[in-house]
Design a protein around this nucleic acid. Structure first.
Lengths: 137, 137
DNA sequence: GTTGCAAATGCAACTTGTTGCATTTGCAAG
DNA sequence: CTTGCAAATGCAACAAGTTGCATTTGCAAC
């Protein structure tokens, strides 16, 4: 797994805790929160500490090995950066999450660069609203 | 102040705590966090309770008298809804906040409705990135 | 295989925000 | 001006996340 090499190359240690957190994020089906990671790991490896999880996630996020998303449920959720970026449309009625291709917001990014000189970081946008199903009912 | 009438009309009581929170938000120059509101008020009126502030903000937000924004600094910030909605571009280097007119994202809203049937709630968008000053240096 | 030590972890205390419940109070009716 | 009571508040306990510091450990050098 390339992640291990990145850590090592930047001089970070390959600790069991870091390996477990990386594996958990890579094997998760969808976006996973810090607390979910902690619970999953603590069940199997009780020696793992909560603060360690948070510090590892901060590190991995800084190294862009994982991506943070705030899906509006009050906690930050993580997913493997290598799986690609995408945006989320969240229905505020039914809670459904629709994934958008990263390229969808290309025109928006271009217009903000043109009009404001602002280089927007549009990798994990979260947009709240009402989905088509809930609008029709 | 119209807010008081809205509260009264919906059957909510006009308590001193609610009046103080409303005044604080309306007199704040920029977006203000729950904790800042609590600190300001608690200095002058020590009887004001933290949980009351949070519950009042929840109520006012639900009634759309104030607008919530998550500016990415880990806390929700509030501003008076009557002052109008706008979006924020936040520079992740220098922290500068650029305000965008609400209408700027009109095309984006239209395209999401067209392509996904999704009625996006684009009233307090927060977009992270790098501002023109920081890009040139 | 040992050793040294900075990096990483575990622990406990702390901060920030939330919740359940007893007490207080705004306010409408008499 | 009282009174009654649901609504609102204060309090204290709790949950989630953070931080400082002592202890442990990955790993490079020998």
């Amino acid at each position: 797994m390339l992640c291990y090499e990145v850590l090592h190359a930047k001089g970070y240690r390959l600790t069991p805790q870091r390996i477990l957190v990386l594996k958990t994020i890579y094997h998760a089906d969808n976006h996973i929160s810090a607390e979910e990671i902690y619970e999953q790991l603590h069940d199997r490896f009780p020696y793992i500490n909560k603060s360690t999880i948070y510090r590892i996630l901060e590190l991995l996020s800084g190294l862009k090995l994982v991506t943070e998303s705030n899906l509006g449920d009050g906690c930050i959720r993580y997913h493997a950066a290598i799986k690609g970026h995408h945006h989320h449309l969240i229905c505020r009625i039914c809670g459904k999450v629709i994934d958008l291709e990263e390229s969808t917001l290309g025109p928006l990014k271009a217009s903000m660069l043109r009009d404001y000189g602002f280089d927007a970081d549009l990798r994990h946008m979260v947009i709240s609203g009402v989905c088509s199903d809930c609008r029709s009912s």
